[in-house]
């Protein structure tokens, strides 16, 4: 399937899901939209993680940090937009005040740019080293950023910040309830992320990343620009995570470091692709849909900690028993006769 055909098909599916969500709203209320938003947010996060982790083999433990960068970019700009005169008057940036407040798509774009830049900088510092050091550095980065945010009063510090969600959003002549608008935005973002991932997977860049994953020195020796590809993948993956985080303040209404940097994001971003399957774009999608829905069900029926326990146990179980994830299991089941290729040790 060509790239643009895939995009059109994905958009049609997205439109169908959105229409269905609007239809069931009359019977179920807004709950399905709120739950669906979270699942879609995980589709974006998992797909973004997989661009670096699955295709290139570099583990990012700092997904929550990139997510939070997106969220806090929105908080900072929202606060600026709520009272531009107070922060901008008498500074060279006064003219920018006329642009405020920013619309949600602009905020998503800006959140993506900021976290993409952070990803680039962090990759530039650590990607020359062995992959393990990169993984540890991402853990470290998450804590450094969280400490900075805790100590940054403008965005609320450890107290957190309240964001008042508008009642409705106008898209041209249509007026949508804000949660519908958020759901729609996240839906389009998910389609975009999947399209990006699939395009990379089938491009020269995807081949290069796979070569790095399988044997980095060999890739380097055959002329793959390893550092450049890794940097591009890190920045892109970080940008998508930031974009997933940008609408978050409007979704929850109250952002504090503990929820924006929450462990569930870091864990799910890794667990979902690992459980779904890391080698194709479909893996993170499947993983996020299955695990995301499971967690939503577990959260309403048991406790939210129980839902996280499910993820942890599934993650460990899958990496031991089924290293290729659900997608790998399905492929094995569809082609049981095919002789198994043994990977060289």
């Amino acid at each position: 399937m060509r790239s643009w055909v895939f995009l059109i098909v994905a958009l049609i599916v997205a439109a169908a899901v959105f229409a269905a969500a609007l239809l069931v709203r009359t019977t179920y209320g807004d709950y399905l939209l709120f739950a669906g938003y979270v699942v879609l947010q995980y589709v974006v996060l998992a797909t973004a993680w997989n661009i670096l982790g699955g295709y290139c083999g570099y583990v990012n433990f700092g997904s929550a940090a990139f997510f939070a960068i997106g969220a806090y970019t929105t908080v900072a700009l929202h606060k600026l937009g709520a009272n531009p005169g107070r922060y901008l008057s008498d500074t060279p940036f006064e003219v920018l005040g006329t642009l405020l407040p920013l619309s949600l798509p602009t905020l998503i774009l800006l959140g993506g740019i900021v976290s993409g830049l952070v990803g680039f900088g962090m990759g530039y510092l650590t990607l020359r080293l062995r992959g393990v050091f990169f993984a540890i550095a991402t853990l470290a980065m998450a804590v450094v950023l969280q400490t900075i945010v805790v100590n940054w009063d403008y965005v609320g510090g450890s107290r957190g910040a309240y964001i008042i969600r508008p009642d409705a959003a106008e898209i041209g002549p249509v007026s949508l309830a804000y949660i519908q608008y958020l759901f729609l935005a996240m839906m389009l973002l998910a389609v975009f992320a999947l399209w990006v991932a699939r395009t990379i997977e089938r491009s020269r860049m995807g081949l290069g990343l796979a070569a790095i994953r399988d044997d980095e020195p060999a890739a380097e020796a055959s002329g793959v620009p390893t550092l450049r590809l890794k940097l591009a993948a890190t920045a892109l993956s970080g940008a998508l995570m930031g974009m997933a985080g940008a609408p978050f303040p409007y979704y929850v209404g109250y952002v504090e470091p503990a929820n924006a940097f929450g462990l569930p994001y870091a864990v799910n971003a890794i667990a979902m692709p690992m459980i779904g399957g890391t080698t194709t774009w479909a893996g993170p999608l499947v993983g996020a849909l299955v695990l995301g829905s499971l967690q939503q069900i577990a959260t309403v029926t048991f406790r939210s900690e129980a839902s996280l326990l499910i993820v942890g146990v599934l993650l460990v179980g899958f990496v031991i028993v089924a290293p290729r994830g659900i997608v790998g299991l399905v492929e094995n089941w569809r082609r049981p006769k095919k002789k198994k290729l043994k990977s060289p040790q």
Binding site: V59, V132, V313, L315, Q345
Partner: peptide, 20 residues
């Protein structure tokens, strides 16, 4: 020979399960 990616995920999972 899969310790790089999956081994990390394994220990991360252990960390997480213990905490929860």
């Amino acid at each position: 020979g899969e310790e790089a990616l999956r081994g990390l995920a394994f220990f991360f999972g252990l960390l997480f399960i213990t905490e929860v």
